[in-house]
Write a protein that binds this DNA or RNA. Structure first.
Lengths: 204, 204
DNA sequence: GTAAAAATCGACACCGTGTAGACTTTCTGG
DNA sequence: CCAGAAAGTCTACACGGTGTCGATTTTTAC
């Protein structure tokens, strides 16, 4: 089994299998888009990637593992991006920028993100990945709220709990809106931004 | 096939099948609780209800249909209850009462509600049922916001859109919290209530 | 150029689904 | 009360998807 390349980044020339592995994930993403998780069969993925089922099992142990890898690939991009994004001090601006970034995220990766959310329950690995991602957002929102003067702490009416609720609001709102259209998503974003601003007491 | 009893309420003595039908749904609910939807097999349900797979297919056409019926049964209770609940004019009180009712709802039916949410995508019938339920909530929240002075309308920063976002916030927050404990749910409720109050401009 | 490692294939066993047909139990009306 | 119909139940089967295995071919490394 390939996978798990922790430190061997540039060992020898790229294995042929690495190509296939990517082809499998790409196919999986495409199939997910117009068949959905349940309808998508291991045979479909293999066929799309140009190999047989038997060969696919050389790379991944199951359909679930394929999807876990796909989610991991996407989510790592998210982490990467959020790490390299400039942090603004001014809360109003920070909120606007965060929402803008989130819209882009969902425009680009909405499908995989929705899949991740849907499978969080049934596939523990994905649940892990997604809850870690959510934690990053919650931490960021908490920081903005505190900077805007909301009392720090974990009690129900303090920054931490509020940030969590706002995170879920954004997740769910974007989840639904991203199934519609870009315009819907943009409007949903405006609404969320507005509610975030109000919650932070920044409406004067 | 039984089911579809629109107006024949008290026709003859209760059919034996009605008993079985309820037994099937009860078993399904129980299995859902400690095996989850995917792990639960039609054979499991039949066994739990004291019949064979073949007999179960007399009542329901598939596992999905069983779960749809279970969700429908639960959701009808919700509708029933929300219809018979007193409406309060004073916004602050209306919000407090709504949140209290919602906590009770999730305490009693959390499992089925989470299942409904999870399957909304894959089972259109359930998606229908749940989105209708959400609409009831959104309408109610919208009314409260307007009464509290938020401008009516469907633009991103007006009552309707805000209500939708708040509804998703509550749904998702309760979804997660109800998996933990009653205390967590109660705290989550307090946070949501706080955010709802702030959004309605009722914090003076 | 060759031997080990990587990749691929086809066949198989297993399990869950849904259907069919025969059989039994329960109701209903004369 | 009893015969025919309706309701309920069962066993057996066919199908489709999953995951495994051993044999075989291709690629890579020295």
């Amino acid at each position: 089994m390939p996978s798990h390349h922790p430190a061997r980044s540039r060992r020898s020339t790229e294995r042929k299998g690495d190509l296939r592995e990517r082809a499998i994930l790409d196919t999986c993403e495409a199939l997910l888009a117009h068949k959905g998780y349940n309808a998508m069969t291991v045979g479909d993925i293999a066929q799309g990637a140009g190999i047989t089922r038997g060969a696919l099992y050389f790379y991944f142990g199951s359909k679930q593992e394929v999807v876990v890898a796909l989610v991991a690939r996407t989510v790592e991009q998210l982490w990467e991006r959020s790490r390299t994004t400039a942090q603004t001090d001014e809360p109003r601006q920070a909120i606007a920028e965060a929402m803008q970034r989130t819209v882009e995220l969902w425009n680009e990766h909405g499908l995989v993100m929705r899949t991740a959310i849907d499978l969080s329950l049934t596939v523990p690995e994905i649940g892990e990945l997604w809850s870690h991602t959510a934690d990053l957002f919650i931490t960021a929102i908490t920081a903005v709220l505190e900077r805007a003067g909301i009392q720090a702490g974990t009690e129900p009416e303090q920054a931490s709990a509020m940030a969590r609720a706002l995170c879920w609001m954004i997740e769910r709102t974007f989840y639904h809106a991203s199934q519609e259209s870009r315009e819907t998503l943009q409007e949903a974003s405006a609404t969320c931004e507005h509610l975030w601003l109000i919650s932070a007491g920044l409406t004067t």
